[in-house]
């Protein structure tokens, strides 16, 4: 178990302790305030260089990482894969070596292959590597911002300071994750975070989209989405991953939607306080009905905006903080 990500790379939430997670959430909370300033910048990473390498398409993750780095006053080297020599067949190792030769402190890496971030950290052990999504493996900052958003909303409802709640809002919190768990790195990171923070997690998915080893996961599988709707305090919907061939794991999209989609009629049975989350991009009309996505209970845009403080916190803790330092 890792007790703090200070001065370390961040590959996965699988091995982070509750204390390490709370430290990140608390640090992010302190950066929320920066967003409200006229000058949205702090000097925490002044003179540091963060390389942002996205080998797979991304809008929100890339923008929010780069925004986060800039708000911390870091210099950002951004590699647009489409226009780089990667297109000319340059290997991952050579690309990293090239970027490293320019002098960098951290690499934010998105790659379609599981384990790519770990591989990169072997090439450049002196650089902090932050996994921004690798294949089907992990998307740690998404898991963190989801947990952060839940804590923020629940603390606000209770009229208390989010930092003071620590992890208490998660004690016994009932989270239902629905959809393509098997192909989802978000589900893996979310479940790691929620379980470590004390939540109860259930998953609902077609049998073909459940991981082969789901019985060994610290979750309960529910056969019927319907049955769990009223149980849930939080419903986390997952994107059906067409690009990974998930479409052929179900007979048809319409059948998937009929059984596992959060349709308008199903949404009417939700308790009013139940939160609806989605990591984006949404397949509107597949896992989530368009009108439901726009309900106040759907905190999807909040997830997006919280991406910035969470990624500021991760960059700050991994790059600026040495293991002994105290904030």
């Amino acid at each position: 178990m890792i007790e703090s990500i200070r001065g370390r790379s961040l590959m996965s939430l699988h091995d982070l302790s509750r204390a390490a997670l709370v430290e990140i959430l608390d640090t992010a909370e302190s950066f929320v305030e920066v967003h409200r300033r006229t000058v949205k910048k702090v000097p925490a990473l002044k003179g540091r260089v963060v390389a942002s390498l996205f080998f797979e398409e991304s809008t929100r993750t890339r923008l929010s990482f780069e925004t986060a780095a800039k708000r911390l006053s870091a210099d950002v080297l951004s590699l647009a894969v489409a226009s780089s020599s990667v297109k000319k067949g340059e290997s991952l190792r050579d690309t990293i070596a090239t970027i490293d030769a320019l002098g960098i402190d951290a690499v934010v890496l998105r790659h379609r292959s599981s384990g790519a971030a770990e591989q990169v950290s072997r090439y450049v052990p002196h650089v902090r590597v932050i996994n921004a999504g690798d294949g089907l493996h992990q998307h740690p900052t998404q898991g963190l911002l989801d947990a952060f958003t839940i804590r923020q909303v629940l603390a606000q409802r209770r009229g208390v300071n989010a930092v003071e709640t620590g992890s208490t809002v998660f004690e016994g919190l009932r989270v239902l994750i629905v959809g393509d768990v098997m192909h989802s790195r978000v589900a893996r990171s979310d479940i790691d975070a929620y379980v470590a923070l004390g939540a109860q997690v259930r998953v609902a998915a077609p049998g073909t989209l459940l991981p082969m080893d789901i019985d060994a996961w610290p979750v309960e599988v529910v056969g019927d989405f319907e049955d769990a709707i009223e149980w849930a305090d939080v419903i986390g919907l997952l994107r059906l991953q067409h690009e990974r061939g998930a479409g052929s794991f179900v007979p048809s999209l319409s059948e998937f939607t009929a059984i596992y989609g959060l349709t308008a009629s199903r949404a009417r049975r939700l308790r009013p306080e139940t939160l609806i989350m989605h990591p984006g991009p949404i397949n509107r009309g597949v896992e989530l009905d368009s009108t439901v996505a726009d309900l106040p209970a759907a905190i999807i845009e909040r997830q997006v905006s919280n991406g910035v403080p969470i990624r500021m916190a991760v960059l700050y803790l991994t790059v600026a903080a040495s293991p002994s330092e105290v904030v």
Partner: peptide
């Protein structure tokens, strides 16, 4: 190999 480890590592089994 397909199993708990491949699932955790996000590698197709």
């Amino acid at each position: 190999n397909e199993g708990a480890l491949s699932s955790r590592l996000g590698l197709v089994g």
